[in-house]
Design a protein around this nucleic acid. Structure first.
Lengths: 282, 282
DNA sequence: AGCGGTGGTCAATAATTTATTCTTGCTTCA
DNA sequence: TGAAGCAAGAATAAATTATTGACCACCGCT
């Protein structure tokens, strides 16, 4: 996996100084060859140990190891595109819109893949498979994702409930018991009401899965398992699209993982019923 | 020039020990990452200084520099192909789920791109931009897509209404007038109630946009403009995911096309408000 | 507001790695 | 034979990197 992508993916979750290091590396990846950890530290006016800790935090043995890895990434050409360099001709933009937008989505997907290890995904899939009931909650766009996910689960024969409002959810949750799972969708993970809800749910012995952006946020801390999304674009109207796409892909993976033997049959039966409902002729 | 090539070229005029170093590096280029000059020397039963001198003789600043360069060469692929049999089968399957699923989505996206020309997309974007009110309707998964789209439009300052039920929609539509647009989401396009609705809407001089799978279906026939989705997978539980993804991408394109000047400002204002709502602290 | 606790930073320093120096031994050629 | 030239290694200097411990800021909680 490209170390540059990894840096990009983790960037959100970094402290100010770490982010400066990350940015420097992303921008000057090809110059890094001539930088020792000390020189890099001097260039950024920070301490050398910060550079080393940065490297280790990303999972490398140390600074030289990270440097080596970046060297590989650059050589491989999987360099992070400097910017989506605002193309001059509007016509060009239009023609390739589908393609460039999809590329952005692909990048977001890859970043997201890097920060959720496969083990966690299957753990969550197992957790949901064995759950008594699954509660999904989220507001705004997150609410729609929650609802869609709940519908998917329902097709698999899992009892899944969804709310886009904290008040009825509070009531519903008061009946939760051991074995139930709460899936909380919150891009920023800052919503006080949701944290409250989690505490309440935890008291009733339920398991909590959080789905948030890859920043440090209170919601993650409360959760038994976390799903993380990374999606970036300087254009404020595009970023939400990328977030939604990466999030959806994550959920889709969970869904696929849950589709085994019995549940798959259940799904097929349900799909057939739905088909009939929509078009009695068939 | 690739450092590996250089080593091979110089090999013939090297001393015995240098040649052993050269051979070791050529054979184990991909393992060199984990060797310090001392370890390499130990492995070859030679002195560490010989390794350093070897590096310098070849024109590198020192051993790390040579190592870095070899890393690049390997990454660039100018090396003997590495065997990738390391991972266990199960782990590989798991890890690649994300990737293969995404590839499937990419395929669906591409198919979909091919059957909707850019012109149609911008026409629809224009239509929606100029619309008085936009009505979105769909059932099941389509309903969620409709809702999400309506929410997006609302953020752009367009008056957008959404229903997942034909009955209230009928009522709402009865107030439709020229300049309004109805966006009908229906994967199969077979739903009688929706056709009914379209007829009613057309009588009131509204424009109709259909969003369906790329089959011949009655809904397409009723529409002024059509969006088509292509998504195929033999696994019944995967196909809906692909459909959803491709559909979403189409809608995202429309959305991006609609984001210009005024509306973009409106969007940013709205996003800010939403941000405040979710996290008053910011 | 106050209070542990956590996490991040830096200066100092330890540890490791790399580079140089200096010595030795070998070969070559006058 | 002996001086020059060169390769290699041991010892050591230099550099780079990694760790430690102290300090501070911030966060969530009471």
């Amino acid at each position: 996996m490209s170390s540059l992508l990894k840096i990009r993916a983790e960037r959100d979750q970094m402290s100010a100084i770490e982010r400066r290091i990350a940015d420097f590396m992303l921008e000057n990846a090809h110059l890094l060859r001539d930088y020792s950890s000390q020189q890099l530290a001097d260039a950024l006016q920070i301490s050398q140990s910060s550079v080393v800790k940065f490297s280790q935090k990303l999972g490398f043995k140390g600074y030289p190891d990270l440097k080596y890895s970046i060297g590989e990434a650059v050589a491989r050409g999987s360099d992070v595109p400097v910017k989506t360099a605002a193309k001059s001709a509007r016509a060009t933009v239009r023609e390739s819109l589908a393609e460039t937008l999809w590329q952005s989505k692909s990048r977001a997907e890859e970043e997201t893949r890097l920060i959720n290890d496969a083990g966690t995904l299957s753990e969550i899939a197992t957790l949901l498979s064995r759950a008594g009931r699954v509660f999904c909650i989220g507001f705004g766009d997150d609410g729609l994702a929650a609802q869609a996910f709940a519908q998917r689960l329902a097709l698999l024969g899992t009892l899944a409930l969804h709310h886009a409002d904290a008040v009825p959810m509070t009531a519903t949750i008061s009946s939760a018991e051991r074995g139930d799972v709460l899936v909380v969708f919150s891009e920023q993970g800052q919503h006080a009401a949701l944290n409250q809800l989690c505490r309440q749910f935890r008291e009733r012995q339920g398991k909590i899965v959080s789905v948030t952006r890859h920043t440090s946020n209170p919601l993650r801390a409360h959760a038994d398992a976390t799903l993380l999304v990374s999606a970036h674009d300087e254009r404020s109207h595009v970023q939400p699209l990328l977030y939604q796409s990466a999030l959806q892909h994550l959920l889709d993976q969970i869904f696929v993982l849950m589709c085994d033997g019995d549940r798959l049959e259940q799904l097929n039966t349900n799909l057939e019923h739905v088909q009939h409902l929509l078009d009695p002729k068939l």
